[in-house]
Design a protein around this nucleic acid. Structure first.
Lengths: 132, 132
DNA sequence: ACTTTTTTCTCCTATTGGTTGTATTTTAAT
DNA sequence: ATTAAAATACAACCAATAGGAGAAAAAAGT
């Protein structure tokens, strides 16, 4: 359902078959019914991180294999996976996003005096803006 | 309560604070109550993979950072918040603290043009400094 | 063909993820 | 020293769903 659960489910199935394990065998290893394993593989159920780790151990693979990162150059916002995620967000004030950018930049500045100066600058701006 | 949930919860907290975000702000980004965020960070609730991915996006880090095994004996001397930042950055704790101050000030600036201008300024500074 | 195993699909309910509320404590700003 | 914002804690509540039990197709042996 959640897209990521489907993707992970497919991966689980793939690895399980790679080991020549049946759903029943995997189910026994992680202590759930084989029907439940099906739901994991189909992605119809929201898997907990705990279970994912269990499965990773049962299949003897690092958990990270289930989270194959996208290519570095891919623009995040345009990513289809992110785009149609249900509900909420994306309506949050842009100040937050801007803040991220600012913070990243600021942390790259090596010169201490420069950083201190910038903070003083910001203080001044805030003071002016709020003073009237 | 599952150990892994606790470990992940701690990392969420670390990274969130690294961005200078409050629990409320993170909660809004992922569409849950701040009390629920608390549960995540404390590991009292079993987090779904879906949520973890949401949080990873909100904190702009790859999901895999939550599964990085760290040796028990290794003291976290280096600032944990910055360790997750992509790219090369100075890992001085002072920069972190300064960053928070800057971020807080930045968020108080109402004028959008001013904020944009500041970001451009920062970009310029970084460019000059790194150009060498 | 014919068991036997494996996988799929449909109901059902026990669990818990998630909310709301309140109250206390810490931290930070003025 | 005061005030405000953020974090921690706990309790009660409900809707969503994780997970199980059963029947039944598909696959795979034999």
């Amino acid at each position: 359902m959640t897209n990521i659960d489907k993707a992970i489910g497919l991966k689980i199935k793939e690895i399980r078959k790679g080991w020549g394990l049946s759903q029943i065998e995997l189910a026994e290893r992680i202590g759930v019914s084989f029907q439940q394993v099906q739901k994991y593989e189909k992605g119809t159920t929201r898997m907990s991180v705990f279970r994912l780790q269990q499965i990773a151990e049962a299949l003897e693979v690092p958990v990270s294999v289930f989270f194959i990162e996208q290519k570095a150059g891919t623009p995040q916002v345009a990513d289809p996976q992110i785009t149609y995620m249900e509900g909420e967000s994306e309506s949050l004030p842009s100040v937050n996003k801007e803040g991220f950018v600012l913070l990243k930049l600021f942390r790259r500045i090596k010169n201490k005096k420069t950083r201190e100066g910038l903070i003083r600058l910001l203080r001044g701006i805030v003071e002016i803006e709020e003073k009237k």
